[in-house]
Write a protein that binds this DNA or RNA. Structure first.
Lengths: 204, 204
DNA sequence: TGTACATCAGTGAACGCGCGTTCACTGATGTAC
DNA sequence: TGTACATCAGTGAACGCGCGTTCACTGATGTAC
């Protein structure tokens, strides 16, 4: 098992999934340029040579890893039930914002929002990666708008504002490091009227 | 003048200033890891070998370049006059926010807010750089709070919220690239109540 | 004020290192018969 | 159902290349006398 041998189709698919999952976390944790192909493969339990059996380039991996991350964090906003009446309720919005604006999110970059993790690197990561960010963000904004539902007169605008505020808060919190300022910036945004409204949104 | 020779104290100081200024722009434009010492020196009109007569390491340059950038953008918020009465007026706040939330700012990363330009890279750039970001952000928040003046019941919290919103908007706008979504995220934040208030702040 | 010399900013070549990528090889998988 | 063989996921060494950093050298500066 440890030595070199061909894998079954199932094992191959498993390897690919493991590479993407590992990359998704490592890129968020240490930045797109701070993680090498060999780092990803080593963490996934393989050697770097086999990487190109799965992806044509590092950029292709970054593209897929970021798409995966956007989908992972956005899935928590999906409607999970309806109230049995005529319309669905936006489930989980308050929990989403609660978790987003937390010290835990600041610390655990590897499991958090990809925009907050590597947003300022995205413009330098190539066209494919840029497209992945555009699509991931669009989808996330749609999910947020849906979750905001009738709580706002213009849900999409409210979603865009909310996402911008959340992303900026976490990026600043991480950039200034542990300390009073970090706590303050999180607390201040938690007290924002629009954020307060989202935190009090109906949750199933 | 072109060939190798010792420079006067004045010329040496001029070279150092040029290196920091050049680095400040290049790092913002292409990211901290996307710019090498040789790039900076070449753009500043020198060869890379002489770099270490001015700085002990690349990190030291990043540290100073970011401090320079924070000070440059924050200086526009300084009080520039008073109304001749008992208190100073917050000058330039509306112009600051107006320029911040513009396509021009999105495009001209090299002259814009350093937090928006490289914020998500800061946590991986070393302790000195982190300290520079913490100090630069604190100073910028203070300037924003002062500029907000009596417009908000808690100026510091309002400043923290405003900065977070501005930073997040520009990072998202750049990450998604040119297009409808980019225009929308800027327009949405321009319509935010707190932003509208800042845009209408007294301007001298 | 003039002269001799130590300093040191800047040059250009070189260093080691890590990165993305390539490649010959292995041997279980999975297919053709 | 059984057998022979082509495929290809994964290994481990190797490749260029660019990066941060070092170094011997140059010659005008600026100081000591």
């Amino acid at each position: 098992m440890g030595s070199t041998m061909r894998r079954s189709k199932q094992a191959t698919a498993e390897s690919r999934r493991m590479i993407v999952e590992t990359a998704s976390r490592l890129f968020r944790a240490r930045g797109l340029e701070g993680v090498g192909v060999a780092d990803v493969m080593r963490t996934a339990g393989m050697t770097h040579g086999g990487f190109y059996r799965h992806f044509p380039s590092k950029e292709a991996l970054v593209t897929e890893a970021m798409a995966h991350a956007f989908n992972e964090v956005g899935a928590r906003l999906e409607l999970e039930s309806n109230d049995g009446g005529t319309h669905n309720l936006p489930v989980k919005l308050s929990a989403y914002v609660e978790d987003y604006l937390s010290v835990k999110h600041v610390v655990h970059t590897e499991l958090g929002c990809p925009m907050a993790a590597v947003g300022s690197e995205a413009p330098h990561a190539g066209l494919e990666v840029g497209a992945s960010f555009a699509q991931g963000t669009e989808r996330l904004v749609q999910r947020l708008a849906t979750a905001l539902g009738n709580a706002a007169p213009t849900p999409r605008d409210a979603a865009l504002r909310l996402l911008s505020s959340l992303v900026g808060t976490i990026i600043i919190a991480r950039a200034v490091g542990e300390g009073t300022l970090q706590d303050e910036v999180i607390a201040a945004m938690r007290a924002d009227p629009a954020v307060v409204q989202a935190l009090n949104a109906p949750s199933a």
